[in-house]
Design a protein around this nucleic acid. Structure first.
Lengths: 203, 203
DNA sequence: TGATTTATGTAGTGGTCATTACATAAACAA
DNA sequence: TTGTTTATGTAATGACCACTACATAAATCA
């Protein structure tokens, strides 16, 4: 059956994407409903009828971010031929994504509510969960590399995963501070320089 | 000549320290004047008479933070016998300072206003300047190490400094997310593992 | 046509924000 | 004492916050 009442006068996906960019650049608390409705091209009642409220809109924006912006960074971790290639791709894709020009610099998951003390604790918790999920993803990939013989059994997969994900978080700060793509690529190269030392048996 | 009118009824330094901890844990925008005055044990007019306003109070709090909390991390960069020892100390002192228990986790300079889009641009600019000053400090120390023969002339001091300061920024996110001191120490060790590769002539 | 359903625009709601006017209190100077 | 200076507490300011009541518009259904 087709839709009943008056049809929506705007594109839900477009509006959500606009909201995402506001949250991405300004953070959750600093993004006011006036900012959001202006960017989305709608009035507050339409926002509430369509998305429920500021918090649920943000949660949807996070999902959209992970699906569209984050995928280019993390999607190849499982499929990359080696753990080394996987992590190298994560860091270089990060350098590229964080300096794209058309979108805000740095990662929304890292920058949107880093204080963990905002008015809305559910927002902080959701972002923290996403941050930690990326670390777990790397750690699983490293463990698989141990099983497959790429890395020695003595490798500290937890420490290595934490190390690379920490650097990736720091790249958000650098990007927001204006670091160029070349600068971020050089940082990624420096981080990869520790690979052999981290994955040798002497560790 | 002694003070003229009615003497202040509270300790200026103590109040400033309390304000600093509020900004540190909640960030600039999320720290309301009600939060600040409650923590400082004074009323708003005393805050304004003594510190000028929220922004100037914050700027003073930043100076206090750099002088007291940040000094343990960065003060030995110049005096350390080698650049390697300097950076190793920075990372391990960071792991210790960010998990002290009595103070908020992570770095105020990184976490207090990372969006760079808040209502007050002077606050963002001041924090950014402090972040970049740390990178410059490391870079100068590395250049000195080249001059002194500790590092080869081919070393990319800018890249190495950016790399370590980026990791140090990421440690603020990890600390705020609850990473233990041991976890941060392990991350620091991983970062130091790249030292030989970064400073060999093959780079 | 008229009834129903959904979306929209206007115009508010109470609450919190940073900031301050004003009267009073507590010190010193004359 | 009386005046001067600085600090304090109460209470208010207008601005902005997230959110919503309500009347109206635009579609389908009977």
């Amino acid at each position: 059956m087709p839709q009943r009442g008056r049809p929506r006068g705007f594109d839900r996906e477009e509006a959500l994407r606009s909201a995402m960019e506001v949250f991405w650049s300004q953070g959750y608390d600093n993004a006011s409903l006036a900012d959001l409705t202006r960017a989305m091209g709608i009035n507050a009642p339409s926002l509430y009828a369509t998305f429920g409220g500021k918090e649920t809109l943000f949660q949807e924006a996070v999902k959209l971010y992970v699906r569209t912006e984050g995928s280019g960074i993390w999607e190849q971790v499982e499929t990359a031929p080696t753990a080394r290639a996987a992590i190298k791709h994560v860091l270089h894709a990060t350098a590229e994504a964080f300096t794209r020009g058309a979108t805000p610099r740095g990662c929304m998951i890292v920058l949107a509510a880093p204080q963990m003390q905002g008015a809305n604790s559910q927002v902080c918790d959701a972002l923290k969960a996403h941050r930690q999920a990326n670390g777990c993803l790397l750690e699983r990939r490293l463990r698989r590399a141990v099983e497959e013989g790429e890395l020695p059994a003595s490798s500290d997969c937890t420490a290595i995963a934490n190390y690379y994900v920490t650097l990736q978080h720091g790249m958000s700060i650098q990007a927001r501070d204006g670091a160029s793509r070349e600068t971020l690529q050089a940082i990624a190269d420096c981080a990869m320089a520790s690979w052999n030392a981290l994955t040798s048996c002497s560790a």
